[in-house]
């Protein structure tokens, strides 16, 4: 999916838990996330802390979107 959207010229950041798969399918901007059942969650932390972690991940994703790259990059 990410490749088809990029083909249309819109940068995509793929946030996922299993980076090798993302690399294989050919995403360009990759941000590794926490775990498969909760990529943007940290259920073992308190709600506030969890949200902070989530926000940091999204900010990282936004930075990836604003970064010029020439090839597949894991942020």
């Amino acid at each position: 999916m990410s490749k088809q959207i990029e083909r249309a010229g819109i940068p995509v950041v793929h946030a996922c838990s299993i980076v090798p798969i993302s690399k294989t399918v050919g995403a360009n901007r990759i941000v590794p996330t926490i775990a498969i059942p909760h990529p943007f969650g940290a259920p073992d932390k308190g709600p506030e802390e969890e949200k902070k972690v989530r926000k940091e991940l999204v900010q990282k994703a936004l930075r990836a979107l604003a970064t010029p790259i020439s090839q597949q990059t894991v942020f």
């Binding site: 999916m1 959207i5 819109i10 940068p11 950041v13 946030a15 999204v58 979107l65």
Partner: peptide, 14 residues
Amino acid sequence: LLADGVQAVILTST
């Protein structure tokens, strides 16, 4: 997305 002028996408996977 193009039609709506979207400039960036976050795609999440598990």
